[in-house]
Amino acid sequence: MDVVNVLHMNAENRKCSYAENSTLQKTVILKARKVLEETIKDYGSHGFPQCFKLADLGCSSGPNSLFLIANIVDGVHAFCQKKNLKAPDEYQVFLNDLPNNDFNAVFKMTPQFYSNLENEIGPEKSEKCFICGVPGSFYKRLFPSDSLHFVHSSYSVHWLSQVPRELLDINKGNIYIPKVNPAGVYEAYFNQFTRDFTAFLHMRSEEMVSKGRMVLTLIGRSTADPACNNDCCHLYGLLAKSLHDMVAEGLIHEEDFNSFNLPIYTSCTDELKAIIESENSFTIDRLETFEVNCDTRDENEKIKSDESSGRFIANTIRAVMEPMLASHFGNTFMDKLFERYAMHVTEHLSREEPKYFNIVISLTKKCK
Rank of each mutant, 00 (worst) to 15 (best):
G212N: 06
G58N: 04
V215L: 11
E279P: 11
S222E: 13
L243C: 06
T332C: 15
S267L: 03
L287G: 03
A342D: 01
L7Y: 13
K86I: 04
T217K: 13
F94M: 07
C59A: 09
D74W: 06
P49F: 08
E37A: 04
E254I: 09
C294S: 00
V215D: 08
F197H: 00
N171I: 02
N64S: 12
F197L: 00
H152L: 04
H149Y: 12
L117S: 11
N104H: 05
L117M: 12
I252Q: 06
V320I: 12
I275Q: 02
N10V: 11
V360E: 13
K179C: 07
H152T: 02
G250I: 15
F333K: 10
H348V: 02
N10K: 14
D42V: 03
S362D: 13
R165H: 14
C132S: 09
Y91K: 08
C132R: 05
D306H: 02
S17Q: 13
F190N: 11
S17G: 14
M324A: 11
E20V: 09
S45G: 09
R33P: 01
I284G: 14
N119I: 05
I252G: 08
I131P: 02
K15C: 15
N64A: 13
R14G: 15
T23M: 15
D97I: 00
P263L: 10
Y43Q: 02
E291A: 05
K365P: 07
T194W: 12
P123V: 03
S65V: 04
K53C: 10
A274M: 05
R286K: 15
R311C: 10
N258C: 14
F257S: 09
A11E: 15
L337E: 12
A240F: 04
S205G: 06
F333P: 07
T296E: 10
T316N: 15
L66H: 03
D42N: 08
A32Y: 06
L57H: 00
T23E: 15
F48I: 03
E206V: 03
F282T: 03
K31I: 07
Q50K: 10
D169L: 12
N258I: 06
L218V: 06
P144D: 06
A78M: 04
A183N: 04
K365M: 08
E120C: 09
M343S: 02
C228S: 05
L85E: 03
N104G: 01
S22A: 15
V6S: 15
A87K: 04
P323K: 12
E301P: 08
S137V: 00
F138C: 09
T346A: 03
S278T: 11
K172S: 09
S22T: 15
D295Q: 00
I284W: 14
H158S: 02
L54K: 03
L235K: 03
P182W: 08
F312L: 11
